[in-house]
Simulated assay, not measured.
Amino acid sequence: MASKTADCKNRGFTEIPAHLPPETQILQLQNNRIWRINQNAFTGTPLLKILDLSNNSLSSFAPGAFQKLRYLQVLNLTRNLIHYIENKTFSFLPHLKELDLSSNSIVRLPETFGNSTGNITLLSVKHNKLQKMERVLLESLPNLKVVLFKDNPWLCNCNVFGLKLWLESFLYRGKEFFSLHTMYMRTQPSKCS
């Protein structure tokens, strides 16, 4: 029986390798130099469940780059060069449970990750440059159990009020864990109306 894991770590790839076995379920692409994901990059590996793209040079994704990955459950994008995530970047990933965007340079997140992302249970945005997060994004993730926010330069002004209300609701519902550990908020004088 063929292995369902493709180990492509530390190979110096600058793009997603072509001609991977179509039965691949785990694709390890960490520690390469991949800088972009094209729209058809995963057409040949529709059964992927775990995709690790950590420690690459990713800064952007083509529209629909992940749309062929209907069975994907874990997406690791840590330690890349991502500055922002477009609306609906992760559309059509109905089985996605873990999304790790830690250790990038993300300055803003969209209002939605996309259609069918309501099954996400873990979201990590640690070590980024986020100053605010839209409440509507968090509310679009009803199954969220673990949220990791630490080490972002949050602004303490009216823009963070929605996040505060969501966090209160999240804690009230007894969700398992969230981390604002070492979260600091810079005070910004403003008038909330």
Rank of each mutant, 00 (worst) to 15 (best):
L93H: 05
D100Y: 07
I82N: 09
E98L: 13
R108L: 13
P94V: 11
L101V: 02
E98A: 07
N87W: 05
P94E: 09
S102L: 06
N87K: 11
E86Q: 14
I106F: 12
H83F: 11
I85S: 10
L101T: 00
I106R: 11
V74H: 08
N80F: 06
S105R: 15
E86P: 03
T78V: 00
L77S: 10
T78A: 12
E86I: 02
T78D: 03
L101Y: 03
R79G: 04
I106E: 12
L81D: 15
L81N: 15
S103N: 13
L96G: 05
V74P: 00
S103H: 15
P94Y: 10
L101A: 02
N87P: 07
E86S: 14
F90P: 01
H83A: 13
F92M: 03
K97E: 09
V107Y: 06
D100N: 08
L75M: 04
S102M: 09
L99K: 00
N104I: 01
I85F: 10
H95S: 13
F90K: 03
R79H: 15
N80A: 11
I82Q: 12
V107D: 01
V74K: 06
D100M: 02
N80T: 10
V107L: 08
T78L: 01
S105C: 15
S103A: 13
H95K: 14
S91L: 03
I85P: 05
S91F: 01
R108N: 13
K88A: 12
Y84F: 13
S103P: 00
